[in-house]
Design a protein around this nucleic acid. Structure first.
Lengths: 356, 356
DNA sequence: AACGTTCATATGAACGTTCAAACGGAGACC
DNA sequence: GGTCTCCGTTTGAACGTTCATATGAACGTT
């Protein structure tokens, strides 16, 4: 009685009315085989005689049958869903979110997984969300980002036996799988590019928080300067975006001081735009008078200041590696954790090499 | 044998090891009641004697029991998950995505739903994804955005009986629930603000595509000019971001022509940043010489050009209405479709009122 | 001809939950 | 004391799959 063998609507390919679902039993009956054979056609076609295979597939098409996820998940004890917590919205936004999310969803799809979103106020409630999802068998594993030094999430998730990978290292006490982009290498590339252009006095606009990403990016600048024989104490001004004073004001102060920077490296594109605005207010031309480099190569980067030089992260690769690492944990839960460090790329534009 | 009554780890509140799940039967046994009573404690506590309630809850806490979603979904024939397709990444990015997604996830959570992501190349594959998700009972309904005139999605989903709401009107032949922000009102506010400041010649930077959002935003500008007795034919230059010529070049051409605009309204913040760059290249000061207004009030808006005047959409409200509309379809599938039009807000900053 | 092997398909059980109905006891009413 | 009602609880069945195992036919070997 469950059979709803209705004609295909013209609109678009598979279709057929959804609710009142067609079951595997309906297909089996119509194809004159058993449930299990239909199941085999879907999950292990090599076990089925080619002829039967074709016949069952035809019926599946006609009825527009699709496996019921809940039933399958219940039986197989997995959900084929991966959980991800959206990083909190901060003033500077999250310029990689859009591209990263796309890449993550795509990478998950390629391996037969879907992405389920949650949000959280803080890391504790984030961990609780993860635990809830896993305890309810709503997800098979977790991807999280924005790691801190000694991040509390890895030990907690390890303890709860929830499979996970992080986008970002944590340098914590426990071993776990991670994928990261070498932020220090990114800002090294930026700094060396600026050094080559003749700049000798720098500013770095970044966070005072100890998140791994921030610290690494700052370190990259310092390392390059030291390697070039330039004293960071004297020729690198650090500007804190989380401070009480606005970035524009801090920048103004620095530009008016001794050792006024002629090159500015930033922790992300939004802060680079802030810098551009301040420079222009002073009649300084980015790329000519002062070199500016952003980070993330977000959509604004291609237009800000006529083209903002920026560090691009290989987000597609990051996503693939993340999902791959998770999937390998599903396959052998006792496997060795693995870290993958990827290199970013410097996209050179007008704000470092522009004519006046 | 399934019982894993292990001590609570210190790390964070609920916890306990995940895999090898505790079932409702384990709880029932330990609390000396039947399955169904445990189920009632969770889903209909009023049916249970207060004393029993407490006892069962204590056991649930001790064992760290959580309902298995797959089993519940299978039995109740719903997933409590909503599907959403990430809009394709275009050159200008999607400046509202971050904030909107957050709002959507939050709104869904408030009603006991989760958000599941998919991506798609085009509208056809998008519709297929939706159909697959619904046919598999992986989602109860769909939210989609970026509507076109005569969008193919509403008729197709209606046909397939997949519950859905759109963020954006479609002006199509079929009736369906939607939530939208009045884009025309947004650019009217922007234009009137600029008119009040004395501007008489305008440019609008937008798409040539016929998506509802674009057209409405352009219409708002035209309507305001007409109402103020200004002829758009003469005093409004339209710049097409999808054209062969770059936006900067088109803008340059317009600024050099007769009726050079002193005010620029854009379809989103990224294009406003493009305009800012071109103005500054010409030594024109935004806010003093030329007024610039963006759209979306994305994170760059607060810093670009020292503060970009922009139109902010009430995304939290949009999300709540979207989820509410979907939920009401679940409750009574035969209910009347309903449209909700919300008003945006103009955030005035330096690029329209700034001192030189 | 009897037996073992392989291939294709079918059957029973189980995954963990909620629904529908049944049960038993306490109290109210006649 | 018997019957009715209500409350709290239990029991059997069902949701739609896949796993483990059984069945039976076809074929090759001795």
């Amino acid at each position: 009685m469950n059979v709803r063998n209705q004609p295909q609507p013209a609109a678009f390919t598979p279709l057929g009315t959804i609710r009142g679902g067609v079951t595997i039993e309906d297909v089996a009956h119509q194809a004159r085989v058993s449930r299990q054979t239909v199941s085999n056609v879907i999950n292990a076609p090599h076990r089925v005689k080619p002829e039967t295979n074709l016949r069952v597939k035809a019926v599946i098409d006609t009825l527009g049958y699709r496996v019921n996820r809940s039933a399958r998940n219940l039986r197989t004890q997995q959900s084929r869903v991966i959980g991800y917590c959206l990083p909190p919205i901060n003033a500077a936004g999250n310029s990689v979110l859009d591209a990263f999310l796309h890449a993550l969803v795509e990478a998950a799809k390629d391996r037969g997984y879907h992405l389920l979103l949650v949000t959280a106020q803080d890391k504790t409630s984030e961990m609780n969300s993860y635990w809830e999802l896993a305890a309810q068998s709503a997800v098979d594993g977790i991807v999280f980002a924005q790691t801190d030094y000694d991040d509390p999430r890895p030990p907690a998730l390890l303890d709860a036996k929830v499979p996970f990978v992080s986008f970002g290292r944590t340098w914590g006490k426990v071993e776990h799988s991670w994928v990261d982009v070498d932020g220090a290498a990114g800002t090294r590339m930026a700094t060396e590019h600026l050094l080559q252009l003749g700049h000798r006095s720098f500013a770095f606009i970044g966070h005072s928080t100890r998140s791994v990403g921030n610290v690494e990016r700052e370190r990259g600048v310092i390392d390059s300067l030291v390697a070039a024989g330039i004293d960071p104490e004297e020729n690198l001004s650090l500007i804190d975006v989380d401070g009480d004073t606005s970035v524009a004001d801090q920048l103004a102060l620095v530009l008016d001081g001794t050792h006024a920077p002629s090159a500015i490296v930033t922790v992300n594109d939004v802060h680079a735009v802030t810098a551009l605005a301040e420079l222009e207010r002073r009649g300084l031309t980015p790329g000519h008078d002062v070199g500016v480099v952003g980070f993330d190569d977000s959509p604004v980067a291609s237009v800000a200041g006529g083209g903002l030089t920026s560090v691009r992260q290989p987000l597609g690769r990051v996503a693939t590696e993340l999902i791959g690492a998770l999937a390998s944990q599903f396959d052998r839960p006792a496997g060795q954790p693995r870290g993958v460090l990827l290199s970013p790329e410097l996209i050179v534009r007008r704000t470092t090499i522009g004519a006046p």
